[in-house]
Design a protein around this nucleic acid. Structure first.
Lengths: 211, 211
DNA sequence: ACACAATTAAAACGATCGTTTAAATCAAAC
DNA sequence: GTTTGATTTAAACGATCGTTTTAATTGTGT
């Protein structure tokens, strides 16, 4: 089963290059030469570049979604059983923490985080659609829980703020060396725990903001 | 001087297509055929595709930056003269309002807003660098004013939150039909005034969040 | 009307893209 | 050891990319 080796090698390299250069800017020849496999290997094992993109995203997103949905559902169940509204900070944490924590989960995970940001803003509708189909149910559940947590807030405002949050999440994601955005000596160096903490602080207050 | 006509026509079309499809995914042939000019016209008038990208961004960003810097500088001067710290909401408004207000400033302006989001997250370093050189001074001034407004906040936290904000800004920007992100009937329809208001509400609270 | 520069037009350039084909190699079953 | 199916290899496919070239056209000043 050398099969497994080749496929995994391609997936790993694709994850890295897609994250760092984008989908469109990464050619089959870059991928296969970096992975040290034949040019035709991608078409043989995955069918096409498009399906490789799908495989790369699925490999990480599906397990991540499973974790997020479990945590969100648990909050929903507990709140429902105990007859109170879910805590907004807990809801946000359940969604955000697994994402950022992924960075320390294994090799290439950091690159995958960038990948999510890329999928968000990719020019090609097919890529965005692919991504949205994968994360749609999670977003839906998150949205419902946010509405529950903020019962006095109009739903369209909650949705708008959710978009703000997702953008805020995606942006640092595809900025590997985002420190030098501001021509300033100040460097940002953070482990995923601190980053999660800072981010949840930020968006919790934003979500709770009075109208 | 048909010159002006052709150049302007190319710039308008490029702004539209770059915003909707991204820089890399928009070819010279798409641009010239949509603009109804000859294929060689872009190279003749702008030199290269890269320089066209630069021209497209400069045409809008430079005037926008002028407005933002004036407003920010005025806040800085007043605060300094009156011996108090600038108001955080005013600072954010000075930066955000001109950006979103641009939508109603003329034809194609909506597309330009998307364009900024694209430049932020473009895979090509040359594009990001180009953009950063254009907006660097504005970001620097904004950063300084934010630090002044939040004197008790560590500068690296301010910088981190500024990144969150810029991401939150950029994301809705390149989502023309972002309503359908969540598979939900709720639609988001907003004029730039309401959007600005909602966004400033959100990020002000986030920026002020206690550690 | 003529000369001259600026602009537009049509065609081709080499390079690279994703994909396909057909032969070579490998692995395991009989 | 041979056969059979899976995998790898090398080469080529047509399409499109950004750019350049050469010629035709337009506009302007004298």
């Amino acid at each position: 089963m050398g099969n497994t080796d080749t496929k995994k090698c391609i997936l790993d390299v694709a994850e890295k290059l897609f994250a760092r250069q984008g989908f469109h800017a990464t050619s089959m020849r870059m991928l296969t030469s970096e992975a040290k496999v034949n040019l035709a290997a991608i078409n043989y094992h995955f069918g096409s570049k498009e399906e490789l993109i799908k495989s790369v995203m699925e490999r990480r997103i599906l397990p991540l979604n499973k974790i997020r949905i479990e945590r969100l559902q648990r909050i929903k169940d507990i709140a429902s059983a105990e007859g109170h509204v879910p805590d907004i900070r807990e809801v946000l944490l359940a969604f955000i923490e697994p994402t950022f924590a992924f960075k320390e989960s294994g090799i290439g995970a950091q690159d995958f985080i960038s990948l999510i940001g890329r999928a968000f803003s990719d020019p090609k509708p097919t890529v965005r659609k692919l991504f949205m189909e994968m994360v749609g149910p999670v977003f839906q559940l998150l949205f419902e829980l946010l509405c529950d947590s903020l019962p006095s807030m109009p739903k369209n405002i909650v949705l708008l703020r959710l978009h703000f949050m997702l953008g805020a999440m995606a942006h640092p994601m595809n900025m590997s060396q985002m420190c030098q955005l501001i021509p300033n000596g100040t460097a940002i160096k953070m482990d995923s725990v601190s980053l999660t903490d800072e981010f949840v602080n930020f968006v919790t207050k934003g979500m709770e903001a009075p109208l």
